[in-house]
């Protein structure tokens, strides 16, 4: 009896969690596919720094860095950041070279709602690495009025 009541009372909290539709997921997958050109995407090496609880979705500080020596033989070529539930899946695509010194980029982004973000790094050997984070947004960016 108690358990049922607890489950019932916690049900509204579950509604606050992001619930991506299949269309959102497919759009994100298509954007990732376009970035990698169909190559295998592995988890790791990429680090996204973003607040897990965002108060204002209009300007969210985010930085992405990749573990790489940034030499001519082994460096990051590109970093792409993608989102799941904004009107468009693309956020930013940055180009790097050995002259970058570090594979690091920081910017301020808009988030329409609580959702997942994926950062992908293309290495000079052609491999792709990624990290995925979930963020909760309390005030959404006014992208739809």
């Amino acid at each position: 009896m108690n358990l049922t009541r607890r489950v019932l009372l916690s049900a509204p909290a579950a509604l606050l969690l992001p619930t991506p539709t299949r269309a959102d997921q497919q759009r994100l997958a298509a954007a990732l596919q376009e970035f990698t050109g169909g190559a295998a995407l592995r988890e790791g090496r990429v680090r996204i720094e973003i607040s897990p609880l965002v108060e204002n979705g209009n300007a969210v500080p985010i930085s992405v860095s990749v573990e790489a020596p940034m030499t001519a033989a082994d460096h990051v070529r590109r970093i792409g950041v993608f989102n799941e539930r904004n009107p468009q899946p693309h956020v930013i695509t940055a180009q790097f070279s050995p002259r970058s010194g570090r594979a690091y980029v920081a910017t301020h982004i808009r988030l329409a709602t609580s959702q997942a973000l994926v950062a992908v790094a293309e290495m000079s050997d052609g491999s792709f690495w990624s990290q995925r984070v979930e963020v909760v947004v309390t005030l959404a960016a006014c992208i739809e009025g």
Partner: peptide, 20 residues
């Protein structure tokens, strides 16, 4: 030494930090 393609998901008054 650095370039980036931006989308509408970048906040107003775009800020970019990077290294060289």
């Amino acid at each position: 030494v650095f370039s980036a393609a931006l989308s509408p998901a970048i906040a107003a008054n775009p800020f970019i930090a990077f290294t060289t």
